[in-house]
Design a protein around this nucleic acid. Structure first.
Length: 485
DNA sequence: TGAAATGTTGGGGCG
DNA sequence: ACGCCCCAACATTTC
């Protein structure tokens, strides 16, 4: 095969974005197959993302993930070039500098990213350059799954059925065995100068819970399959147990891809864990559904999909309640435990996410956008598609949403899913001395029990900021006003 | 991927 | 022995 025709080496830029891995990276694989020289680049653009610029926790993760990616590239003989500046200009400059005639990237699906990438692709192609884009993030492109007649799905169950009929098998790309070096003359900005790490070290605790990067992602997947997958269907709703995969931030940054995850489920020889694999694949299905919805209904990041919710009578003057929710001092132990887990680790168990979201939007009648905004900033797995779906689902205004009357009771949810109170004890230590019978409702505990546990209501721990029964009735009345006639 | 209110049933205490 | 009542326990309906 003659490739280095006329003695000119072909150079390709691989533009990394949220595909921070070498295995199962179709853009990288295609570039390696097509060119002799590879320039891997990450471009840190100016504040972008429209209404949704990357949050603090995401930036923390990104910093460490880029560090890991650079390490992986170096082990193969290459390195990551890090640039700062507007994406288009940075890309053009780099291509001119390196003599690259082509650029490869894996697609993003956020509305602002689609608009930007489409424009970059158009202009570069107009200049006669090669632009090739790929799917690394999803099992199917959002437009590949369609209803009869071409409309998008709005219900998960038929969507998932269509996905299953299409089949989940997508062979992951193998990683390159080696990569050509990047010339010394190609300069980059040191990672530290991107300013991704917070100035105030509120992230100090994150290191205890997370390790970013492709290797860590793979390890977590393997450990999950080996140790927890069998119990996943029965225990995944238990925040007090290590029953979930915690892959979400790795998936968000593309340190591992859904194809690899599905393959791990399939390859697992213990078929008695079939139910676990099925249940976990279904969760990947929700992720696919979220991207499907974001692609087809891009305005839902800010507006309810269900138009009648535009006139919903949300509470006014809710700042104090919002702050109590954010800081984990609502007086509802399960809610506070969740919000503090979020603050300390950048992550929250999914069952608890539903409970705190229901409490915010229904018991406090605070607009779901406020919750989405807070999660966006604090979650290490903050993902526009998933976050939007999750909040609209809880608020009852989204696709396949929870009916408006479905209001979680944080006490009952706590008793059901944290029966011994271990989760609350861990994150709300001032309640740790309470017996299980009162851990989820300290305000109902006899004074002798409180005293023995060292709990002084209103002092060491607040009473509930709203009455559960009354606020539930208020929410039902509010929803009644926008009910479909 | 609810909770509360309301309805039904059946065991057991008791006159 | 029988009927009455109470009330868990469970089922159904409603929000």
């Amino acid at each position: 095969m003659v490739r280095a025709d006329w003695g000119v080496m072909k150079t390709a830029v691989v533009w990394f974005r949220r595909d921070l891995r070498l295995t199962d990276n179709p853009a990288l694989a295609a570039a390696v197959a097509a060119a002799e020289r590879i320039v891997p680049v990450y471009i840190h653009g100016p504040v972008s993302g429209g209404n949704w610029p990357m949050g603090s926790a995401s930036r923390w993760w990104l910093h460490h993930s880029l560090e890991a990616l650079d390490g992986s590239l170096r082990r193969l003989g290459s390195r990551l070039v890090t640039r700062r500046g507007a994406e288009f200009q940075s890309l053009v400059r780099l291509m001119i500098e390196t003599g690259a005639g082509s650029v490869y990237w894996n697609r993003l699906y956020e509305p602002t990213a689609i608009a930007r990438d489409t424009e970059i692709e158009r202009v570069l192609r107009g200049e006669g350059l090669t632009v090739e884009t790929f799917n690394s993030a999803l099992l199917n492109e959002p437009w590949e799954i369609q209803r009869e007649g071409g409309q998008p799905y709005r219900k998960f169950t038929p969507f998932w059925k269509a996905v299953r009929q299409r089949g989940l098998d997508r062979a992951p790309e193998l990683p390159p065995k080696a990569l050509p070096p990047v010339a010394e003359t190609v300069a980059g900005v040191p990672l530290e100068e991107l300013g991704l790490l917070p100035r105030i070290p509120w992230d100090a605790g994150f290191h205890e819970f997370w390790r970013a990067g492709e290797q860590a992602a793979r390890q977590r997947l393997d450990e999950f399959v080996a140790s927890a997958l069998g119990r996943y269907p029965a225990q995944r709703d238990r925040p007090d147990l290590p029953a979930t995969s915690r892959l979400s931030p790795h998936l968000h940054f593309g340190e591992i891809g859904p194809r690899q995850v599905v393959q791990a489920m399939r390859d697992d020889s213990a078929w008695i864990w079939k139910d676990g694999a099925e249940a976990y694949n279904r969760e990947l299905g929700w992720r696919e559904f979220a991207y499907h919805l974001l692609y087809h209904f891009p305005e839902t990041t800010d507006e309810p999909l269900e138009p009648r919710f535009a006139g919903f009578p949300w509470a006014e003057g809710y700042q104090a309640h919002l702050a109590a929710w954010q800081q984990g001092r609502t007086g509802l132990p399960l809610v506070d435990a969740g919000m503090r887990e979020l603050w300390h680790t950048g992550w929250m168990h999914n069952r608890v996410r539903m409970v705190v979201a229901s409490f915010l939007t229904k018991n406090l009648l605070i607009p779901w956008q406020e919750g989405a905004r807070w999660f966006w900033d604090i979650l290490v797995d903050a993902d526009l598609a998933n976050n939007t779906l999750g909040w609209q689902w809880t608020a009852g205004c989204g696709a396949d949403a929870a009916p408006y009357f479905r209001i979680f009771n944080p006490v009952l949810q706590g008793q059901r899913f944290d029966p011994e109170g271990a989760y609350v004890r861990r994150w709300v230590p001032e309640l740790a001395g309470l017996p299980a019978a009162y851990i989820h409702k300290p305000w109902r505990a006899p004074s002798s029990v409180l005293e023995k546990a060292g709990v002084r209501l209103d002092n060491t721990y607040p009473r509930p900021i709203v009455d559960l029964k009354g606020s539930r009735e208020r929410a039902l009345a509010a929803f009644e006003r926008i009910k479909k006639r």
